[in-house]
Amino acid sequence: MSVDESRPAGGLREERKARTRRAIREHALRLFLDGGYDETTVEQIAAAAGVSHMTFFRYFPTKEAVVEDDDYDPLIAESVRARPAAEPPMTALHRAVRTGLDTVLAADRDAVYARTRLVVTHPALRARQWRNAATTESLLARALAERAGTPVDLRLRVIAAAATAALITALTTWVDHGGADDLRTLVDEAFAALGAKPR
């Protein structure tokens, strides 16, 4: 039997979509690193991934989105919501980031490094990082508020902004050192500078 009938069709469909999205991203990152971000076209990415350029746009609205979009922020936010309510917010964020990193690095370390390197070294992508950081800050502040059962306030926004800055600085340092350092250790050091308790 070629199809696992015990699985719902929607589950198989979602797996196929995830595989296609991953293949597009992997080919795009390889092309960006080999031939240059600006020089690589959507058509080249689609051809390398074996899909049409229209299929590319079903998964990524723009070329930039291949580098910028990820599922990591929602994963971290969900982990924040699951942390004990009595835990200090910065500690909860640190531990949630570490949980997310453990998952992501185990599955996609090379892709995470390639994407981070592109953002850090490409001026246009780096300039867009501010907008993406603001989105991350907002998501983390909401997760902290939901965990505590309170509205988002200035304090939670500042804590989320500081945690986002710590993570971005750790990622930038990782790239600056050619990926030789352990990213988790860099993240621990960055959060320690903010006064987060050790894990």
Rank of each mutant, 00 (worst) to 15 (best):
A114S: 13
A133L: 09
P84E: 05
L125S: 01
R126L: 09
V112C: 11
E64T: 14
R109Q: 08
A85N: 02
V80Y: 03
Q129K: 09
E64V: 10
D70C: 10
R83M: 14
Y72A: 14
A85S: 13
R126A: 07
R126Q: 10
T91K: 09
V119Y: 05
A124T: 15
P88L: 13
P74I: 01
V80R: 03
P123E: 07
A106E: 11
D110A: 15
R117N: 09
A124K: 01
A106H: 13
R115T: 04
L118Y: 05
D110Q: 14
P74R: 05
V104T: 15
A114I: 00
D108W: 11
D110I: 03
A111Y: 01
R81K: 12
R98K: 11
R128D: 08
S79V: 03
V112R: 14
A85I: 12
T121E: 15
R128L: 08
D108M: 12
A133T: 01
E137D: 10
L93Q: 04
L118C: 04
V97A: 00
T103K: 12
V112T: 14
T116Q: 13
A86T: 10
L105K: 05
N132L: 13
D102F: 12
L93G: 03
H94C: 07
I76Y: 00
T103A: 12
A82Q: 11
R81C: 05
A82N: 07
A77Y: 00
D110T: 11
L101N: 01
G100C: 06
L118M: 08
D102C: 11
Q129A: 11
A107I: 06
V104M: 11
M90Y: 02
P123V: 03
E137Y: 03
V120G: 04
